[in-house]
Amino acid sequence: MTSTTTWNVYLSGEIHTDWRETIAAACAARKLPVAFSAPVTDHEASDDCGVAILGAEPNKFWHDRKGAQLNAIRTRTLLEKADVVVVRFGEKYRQWNAAFDAGYAAALGKPLIILHGPDHAHALKEVDAAALAVAETPEQVAALLAYAVTGRLDG
């Protein structure tokens, strides 16, 4: 039976591909009662929000720190409200923020789904061990969510 509650799913991690849209579309096609949230995925806005709002910083450390702290307002709030957290580790870039989000979600006791290719299995073994599921494709994540929400394999 499909849940009548809307599940809040936080989509953390890599921002250079359309994996979030793929998951959202697959869940919409299944008519799942899910709402998605995410960190700021505009790289420049995320990097520069602190100095754009609070003023310039000549030292890059403080420039980055202002941005990180403002971004943390959104990230922490949405992670804490999430019913499920999905963290994607992409192929091209190191996603230190994604690793932090995975650890934070684990510390909060949030059900955690990790998404990455097989090449990252060794590097992410501790992160994977904290997860309730490790998927290799966005379609698998959508199927995992469908099963969790409906309790059926045909989700």
Results as ranks from 00 to 15, higher is better:
Asp83Arg: 09
Thr75Ala: 06
Val40Cys: 05
Ala105Phe: 06
Val51Cys: 03
Asp64Glu: 13
Ser46Trp: 00
Ala105Gln: 07
Lys92Ile: 15
Gly117Trp: 10
Ser37His: 09
Arg74Met: 08
Asp42Thr: 13
Leu78Thr: 14
Asn97Val: 03
Asp48Trp: 03
Asp83Cys: 10
Ala107Glu: 07
Val51Asp: 03
Gly50Glu: 04
Val86Cys: 12
Val51Trp: 00
Gly103Arg: 13
Asp101Val: 05
Asn71Trp: 00
Val84Ala: 07
Val87Glu: 05
Ala45Tyr: 12
Thr41Pro: 00
Trp96Arg: 11
Gly67Pro: 10
Ala52Asn: 01
Leu54Ala: 10
Gly50Ser: 01
Phe89Arg: 00
Arg94Trp: 07
Leu112Thr: 12
Asp48Arg: 09
Ala102Lys: 03
Ala68Asp: 03
Pro39Ser: 08
Gly103Ile: 09
Ser37Tyr: 01
Asp47Ala: 08
Phe61Cys: 04
Gly55Leu: 08
Asp48Ile: 00
Glu57Tyr: 01
Arg65Glu: 15
Ser46Asn: 02
Ala107Arg: 14
Gln69Phe: 02
Gly109Phe: 02
Gly90Ser: 11
Leu112Pro: 15
Glu91His: 11
Pro58Tyr: 00
Ile113Thr: 13
Ala107Met: 03
Glu57Gln: 15
Leu78Phe: 14
Gly67Lys: 00
Gln69Cys: 03
Pro58Ile: 02
Gly50Pro: 13
Ala56Met: 01
Gly55Ile: 09
Phe89Thr: 03
Ala38Arg: 15
Ile114Phe: 06
Pro111Tyr: 05
Arg94Thr: 15
Ile53Asn: 09
Ser37Gln: 06
Trp62Phe: 15
Gln95Phe: 09
Ala45Glu: 09
Ile73Leu: 14
Phe61Tyr: 06
Ser46His: 02
Tyr93Leu: 14
Trp96Glu: 02
Asn71Thr: 00
Glu44Trp: 04
Gly109Arg: 10
Lys81Phe: 04
Ala56Pro: 07
Ala105Tyr: 08
Val40Phe: 05
Ser46Gln: 10
Ala82Ser: 07
Gly117Cys: 11
Pro39Ala: 12
Ile114Arg: 01
Arg88Pro: 00
Lys81Gly: 12
Leu115Tyr: 12
Asp48Met: 02
Gly90Asn: 10
Ala82Trp: 04
Asp42Pro: 02
Ile73Trp: 11
Arg65Cys: 05
Pro58Ala: 10
Glu80Tyr: 03
Arg88Trp: 04
Lys60Ala: 05
Arg76Met: 09
Ala98Leu: 05
Leu78Gly: 08
Ala107Val: 11
Lys110Gly: 13
Gly103Phe: 07
Leu79Gln: 04
Gly103Met: 04
Glu44Arg: 10
Arg88Tyr: 11
Ala82Tyr: 01
Lys110Asn: 08
Gly103Cys: 13
Lys92Tyr: 08
Thr41Cys: 03
Asn97Leu: 03
His116Asn: 04
Lys60His: 02
Glu80Trp: 10
Ala38Gly: 13
Ala99Met: 05
Leu108Ser: 05
Gly50Ala: 04
Tyr93Cys: 06
Phe100Asp: 01
Lys92Gln: 09
Arg94Asn: 15
Pro39Arg: 10
His63Leu: 07
Val85Gly: 13
Leu70Thr: 01
